Computed example of a mutant assay.
Amino acid sequence: MFSPRSTFVAAGVLLLSAGGALADCVSYGIDFQNGGQYFINKALTQNFSSVSQFEGCSAGYSDVLLVDPKGDEYVCTDIPVTPDDVSQLSTCPILKSQMFSGEWKLLLLGNNGPMNASFAYERDLYLTVGEQVTSTITSTITWNYTTTPIITTTVPSTILVTSTAQNNQTITLPSATARKTITPPAVTSTLTKFFTRTRQSFTKSLTIVTETKTASCTVPPKPNQPDPKATFVPTKPKFAAFASLIAVQAQSSDTPADPVEVRRRMREARLRRGMEVPDRLQEHRARKRSPDSSTVFVNADTVANTTITFTAPATTTTEYELTTLTSTTTLPPKTVLSGKETIFITAPTPTKTRTRLAYTTVTKITTLYKTFTFTTTVTPTASVSACKHRGGHFPGH
């Protein structure tokens, strides 16, 4: 059965043949644009849909037809062609989980009111259907350490050690008193010099803060050029009236009817517009333009730590280099008085001084403080639906 709108198609075709030109009613793809390559998440059990805008149309509705790479046709919900530049959502009777990779087509067919020429436009799409990949992003905190090297210089220091040597010579004096000098053992005293060294130590203090933000809807910009004229002829009876219109468009256009040549021309056109990329970059380009995200990025629960050590200007410490100088004093000869009492005289106790160096280490602890913020993105269900009707998408959806 024909829709009531299709009763005016024949009149529209006659107007087209007589005037030699289409009406000014044109369509634009928003989420799926002609010549584009897109990723479809096969894990989603939602229906495939597309968003279109129209300009210069008089009234009525546009039928939407989805054609898969094998030529099977899916009649989608029709959409109004007025007012201008208003996004209209059409839903197709096929789930994303049922789709497969290849060249798909979207046809927009309409009467454009009872007194205007009908239109038939076509969007050629390359859809990559696959499973969404989850990529984990591990955030990194960088700790900056500054170390100060120590340069040690030596200062010569002389230790004078004095000692007294016994004199074994005896002097005999003609005296009644004998004198003998006794020298006690030398007494050694130790002088200790203390030096303080400072050692640097670092501790880390990391504060984790979690904040939540709402995801933003990304709507592709409206293309500069409207959809091209359709060259695919639908086989469903509902669209039989458009066959002659599409045939006229195919004859008046430069697009050949041979499917192989059509694909070659499509590829050349995409290359000229910078839309075709080598095979190794197909996945990246599909991800960049896809209504469905091929990769979902999530933050890791932990934060990686990396340390960067900076070297500050060196500081100089001075240490003593000890040199021992020994001075020996010989006692005077012993005096002996023959035949008389001997008097023992105790000489002053000789002293020796030794210098000892002692070091103490003081640890200076420096605490480094950092704050890392985890951002969690939430997407309200109502916002997803509104974004979809505008032809946009949220990251990860």
Rank of each mutant, 00 (worst) to 15 (best):
V13M: 07
L15D: 07
A18T: 15
G20Y: 00
L22N: 10
D24P: 06
C25D: 02
F32S: 01
N34M: 03
Y38M: 05
N41D: 15
T45C: 02
T45G: 11
Q46R: 09
Q46M: 01
N47M: 04
S49N: 13
D63M: 05
L66D: 00
L66F: 13
P69C: 08
E73L: 01
Y74C: 08
C76H: 07
T77F: 00
V81P: 01
T82V: 14
P83S: 06
L89C: 11
T91P: 06
T91R: 08
K96P: 01
F100L: 07
F100P: 01
K105P: 00
K105I: 04
L107P: 00
L108C: 00
Y121L: 11
D124W: 04
Y126R: 05
Y126N: 08
I137W: 01
S139E: 13
T142V: 13
I150R: 14
I151F: 02
P156H: 06
T158E: 14
I159K: 04
L160N: 13
T164V: 14
N167F: 09
Q169R: 11
P174E: 11
S175R: 03
T177R: 05
T177M: 02
T181W: 02
I182A: 10
P185V: 03
V187I: 12
T190I: 14
T192Q: 09
K193N: 14
R197M: 09
R199T: 12
Q200E: 11
Q200M: 04
Q200P: 01
Q200Y: 02
T203F: 03
V209N: 14
E211Q: 12
T214I: 14
V219S: 05
P226H: 05
P226T: 07
P228Y: 07
K229V: 14
T231Y: 10
F232T: 10
V233W: 01
A243S: 15
S244C: 03
Q249M: 10
S252E: 15
D254T: 15
P256N: 04
P259R: 02
V260H: 01
A269R: 06
R270E: 09
L271R: 08
R272H: 07
E276F: 03
E276I: 01
E276W: 07
R280M: 04
Q282D: 04
A286N: 15
S290Y: 03
D292V: 03
T295Y: 02
N299L: 14
V303G: 01
A304F: 00
T316Y: 04
T317D: 11
E319N: 10
E321T: 08
L325G: 03
T326I: 07
K334F: 09
S338D: 12
E341D: 15
T346Y: 13
T346A: 10
T349C: 00
T355I: 14
V362Y: 06
I365Q: 15
T366M: 03
T367V: 13
Y369L: 09
T371I: 08
T373F: 05
P380T: 06
S385C: 06
R390K: 15
R390P: 00
R390N: 12
G391C: 09
G391D: 00
F394Q: 03
P395G: 07
